[in-house]
């Protein structure tokens, strides 16, 4: 089921793109990520709208009233909150859905990269069975897995051309660092300005801290092709948010660099 509907289509699209653009797997991952981002754009837009509505609701008078009214009865408060969601046409899961969809894509992509790179016999055997007829497999295999300093099928630090830290035997995890930075930047830029007393802001703060660490760890330990996907995906996410006018520069720029508010 997973192989038929997720893994096989993904690996075939990846290799089809690879065949189209100079037999370069790094470029194939970049183009593939752009495609994924374009396909999931409606979900992203829905997530942004959902977040905005959520924020609107959190700061609404009705919500304040509910908080005051049911401050000693959490269960009743939750029931009333659900009613308020319905009244305002908010789906509380709506803003989580794109995130949830990211996980199977991420897992599928990782497996696709591993499978396509086929750096061991069983992987190559599996690949031979997953390829569709229109892929000229015998011509393309083995795929060129080198991109910049990385072997995309291996962790960055295990790549033969990894950049070494001078006078040591340790490879510099450049891509991991870029993943951490772009994930941090993305989280910061996409977090709405916190309202006073907003409990969600605390959660966001923690997410901004933990997500880059989690993504960094995954990038450091798994195939570097996945790290490339994270970097491109993060940059595209920021670009999509900027296009929708939802990037929150206040979270990263010093106050004196922000445009002054117009006095009414």
């Amino acid at each position: 089921m997973w192989n038929t509907f997720i893994l096989s289509p993904m690996v075939n699209v990846l290799i089809w793109i690879y065949n189209l653009i100079f037999n370069n797997f790094g470029l194939a991952i970049i183009v593939f990520t752009i495609l994924i981002r374009l396909i999931t754009y409606p979900l992203t837009a829905q997530q942004v709208k959902g977040q905005a509505k959520m924020q609107e609701m959190q700061s609404s008078k009705k919500m304040e009233e509910l908080k005051k009214k049911y401050k000693d009865d959490k269960q009743k408060f939750q029931e009333e909150q659900v009613k308020l969601y319905q009244e305002m046409g908010i789906n509380p899961l709506g803003s989580c859905l794109p995130l949830i969809i990211q996980f199977p894509i991420m897992i599928g992509l990782y497996q696709s990269i591993s499978l396509a790179m086929a750096s061991a016999p069983i992987q190559l055997l599996n690949l031979s069975r997953d390829l569709y007829n229109f892929i000229p497999a015998s011509v393309l295999i083995p795929l060129n897995s080198t991109f910049l300093w990385m072997n995309l099928g291996l962790p960055e630090t295990a790549s033969p051309n990894a950049i070494m830290i001078p006078f040591t035997n340790f490879a510099l995890p450049i891509m991991t660092i870029i993943v951490v930075l772009t994930t941090f930047l993305q989280s910061k830029l996409m977090t709405p300005t916190a309202q006073p007393g907003d409990q969600g802001a605390q959660m966001s703060k923690m997410m901004n801290l933990y997500m880059p660490i989690l993504m960094g760890w995954i990038s450091y330990t798994l195939a570097s092709g996945l790290a490339l996907y994270f970097v491109v995906s993060n940059i595209l996410a920021i670009a999509q948010y900027a296009y929708m006018g939802k990037v929150n520069w206040k979270n990263i720029l010093p106050k004196n660099l922000l445009p002054a508010k117009k006095k009414k």
Partner: peptide, 23 residues
Amino acid sequence: LLITLAFFSILITACTSGAYAST
């Protein structure tokens, strides 16, 4: 939140390590 993140890390590692380990 921490438990959720740990769960997702384990999930990702579990789902992906198989492909990497099969040799």
